[in-house]
Every structure is written in structure tokens, then in C-alpha cells.
């Protein structure tokens, strides 16, 4: 197990480094220059631009910029945003919380609801409700999340006035303590609904297929033939076996948690990583972008390892053959 984990970590570090390199190349190959964007289009002062370009090291050859960036990373310095002048690390940390809150809530809701619905349909295959939920799942699967978000705002915020239209808390109230928590949760309802609705179909279909598949296995027939009660068979054997693909999907989805919600965040003006990244892209804010991408690739790498480790506990076929 230890050597396996060690190998996985080395591979992950390598992957993160490669991702960093490719991100750097792509960002620098893209048209647009952060200093020009910063300077605007009216009365451009060429002297100032030259000075700023030098200040941010953009006058150096690309490979020197890259090594300088990596060198600074090892010192724990992610650089300073060209646009805001704030340290990138501080900004990312302040944006990470809201994103994790939104994405974790939505993912967990989607995991639970989707899986439960999938299990229900698997046990009532061919029923009217099964076909109905099946069609609904395709409907939400093919609905773009921004449209869903806009519709939710239109119906529940603008027309019914049940929920706020945007943001993470009421800026005017500026509540403290428990009231603050309630306020954030209140603002969380619509965006997490939009995000969950687009995620539920995945869990629904995987859980349904998986439960049906396991339900047809010989060992389930054996248990049935041995007189075990149906609910016990499902509880102890079908679900235990059917959960494996669901865990995989949950892990993969969590890996993209930091970047996956960008569109919903923008629609609901949620102050998270997604909208932060979009702004940084339009400003060609190199240090900010590199920082965001670094966090994303680290989270993907870490989640993949976590999923694999969890898997070794859930599926003895993996732990025993690769463990030791």
C-alpha cells in the first residue's frame, strides 16, 4: 500500500508540473497582453507600458519567465495579480471557500438524490415512474446550466421573490454569526439547485444501471435461491457492489469541483473561483491565471489519488492485487 501510494504521489506531482508548463505555454501563446489591457485604449502612455512590462518581468524570454515563476512557487510565492496588485495566493484563498461551499453542497445533494432515485428506478424497472424519471434525467442532462440558472432566477427570484437573485450574502444587512450562516444558506439555494439539477442525471443513470446489473448477477440469484429476503439481498449485497461505479463518478466530479461551477457562479454572481477565473482570463492576468490553474490541477491530482485509495477499501480486487 505504501509503495503504491508513493508511486501515485510521484506521478501526481509530475502531472501537476506538466499541467503548469502547458498552461504557461497556452496562456502566453494566446493573443492579448495584460499590460495593454490594463492601460486601456485611451491616451496610452508607451513609457508606462514599457515600465510595467519590465516590472512584471514580461520583457524576459518566456522560458526565463517560466523558471522564475516555478522558482518563486518553491518559495511559496504565487506572484501578484497584474490587475489588482494583490497577492494571488490571498485572492485564491478568499475565492476557494465560496466555490467549495457551492460545489460540495451541490455534489453531495446530487450524489444522494441521484443515487436514491437511480436505486428506486432500478428496483421498479419498466414502471411508469421509471420511464418518467428516465426522460426527466435526459431533459436535465441536456439543459445548459446557465439557462437553468437564468430560469431559476426568473421564476423563484424575480417573479416569486422567494430567493435572492445573486450574490452570496446580503451586502446591506451584513449579518454576523448565526444570522450570517442562514443568510449564506439562503443565497445558496438557487445556485446549488441549478448545479445539482445538472449533476443528478449522472448519478441517477449510473446508480440505476449499476443496481440493475448487479441485481442480475449469479451470486444474487444464489442468495435468492438460498431463501434470503429481497430487501436484505439489496441492502447487503446489491448496493455494496453497485456503489463502486458511483464512487468513481463522484470522485471524478469532485476533481473538477474548483472549475466545474464557473458558469453557474457567473450567472448567480457567486464570488467563487469560477467567476474569478473568467475575469482573469479576460484580463490576461498571467500570475492569477497560473495560480488558478495550479490549484485546479492540484485538486484534480489529489482527488484522483483519494478516489483510488477509497476504492482500494471498497473493492478488495484492487487493494489485494496492487497493495502489499
Amino acid at each position: 500500500m505504501k509503495s503504491y501510494l508513493g508511486k501515485r504521489i510521484v506521478t501526481a506531482v509530475l502531472c501537476v508540473f506538466l499541467a503548469l508548463l502547458f498552461n504557461f505555454i497556452i496562456i502566453h501563446a494566446a493573443p492579448g497582453n495584460p499590460i495593454r489591457i490594463l492601460a486601456g485604449t485611451d491616451s496610452v502612455n508607451e513609457e508606462m507600458i514599457a515600465e510595467l512590462t519590465q516590472k512584471y518581468g514580461l520583457d524576459q524570454p518566456a522560458y526565463i519567465q517560466f523558471f522564475r515563476y516555478v522558482g518563486n512557487l518553491f518559495k511559496g510565492d504565487m506572484g501578484v495579480s497584474i490587475y489588482t496588485g494583490q497577492p494571488v495566493a490571498d485572492e485564491i484563498i478568499s475565492k476557494l471557500g465560496p466555490t467549495l461551499l457551492l460545489c460540495l453542497t451541490s455534489s453531495i445533494i446530487a450524489l444522494i438524490l441521484g443515487t436514491l432515485l437511480g436505486i428506486f428506478c432500478a428496483r421498479h424497472v419498466g414502471s411508469a415512474l421509471d420511464s418518467f424519471l428516465g426522460s426527466i434525467s435526459y431533459l436535465f442532462d441536456s439543459t445548459p446550466s446557465f439557462w437553468l440558472g437564468l430560469m431559476l432566477i426568473l421564476v423563484f427570484a424575480s417573479t416569486l421573490h422567494l430567493f435572492p437573485t445573486a450574490g452570496m450574502f446580503n451586502v446591506r444587512q451584513n449579518a454576523e454569526g448565526f444570522a450570517r450562516v442562514v443568510d449564506v444558506l439562503y443565497h445558496l439555494v438557487l445556485p446549488s439547485t441549478a448545479l445539482s439539477l445538472t449533476l443528478i442525471p449522472y448519478y441517477f443513470r449510473i446508480a440505476r444501471t449499476s443496481v440493475i446489473q448487479v441485481g442480475n448477477e449469479d451470486f444474487i440469484t444464489t442468495l435468492r435461491g438460498a431463501g434470503m429476503r429481497e430487501d436484505r439481498i439489496y441492502r447487503k449485497y446489491v448496493f455494496r457492489n453497485a456503489i463502486l461505479p458511483v464512487v468513481t463518478v463522484f470522485g471524478i466530479q469532485l476533481a473538477y469541483i474548483v472549475s466545474g461551477s464557473a458558469i453557474v457562479e457567473i450567472v448567480f454572481s457567486w464570488p467563487g473561483m469560477g467567476s474569478y477565473m473568467m475575469t482573469a482570463i479576460s484580463r490576461r492576468d498571467y500570475p492569477t491565471l497560473m495560480g488558478i490553474y495550479l490549484v485546479i490541477s492540484i485538486s484534480v491530482a489529489v482527488m484522483m489519488i483519494v478516489v483510488d485509495v477509497v476504492y482500494t477499501y471498497l473493492d478488495p480486487r484492487i487493494s489485494r492485487s496492487e497493495g502489499k
Binding site: E217, D218, F219, Y237, R240, D315, P316
Partner: peptide, 12 residues
């Protein structure tokens, strides 16, 4: 059953 491997739960 014919397929003995499938006659047992793989995770138990």
C-alpha cells in the same frame, strides 16, 4: 451454478 466465480460476491 456453472460460473463459480460469479456465484460469490466479489467484495465479500
Amino acid at each position: 451454478f456453472q460460473k463459480a466465480l460469479n456465484a460469490l460476491s466479489p467484495v465479500h
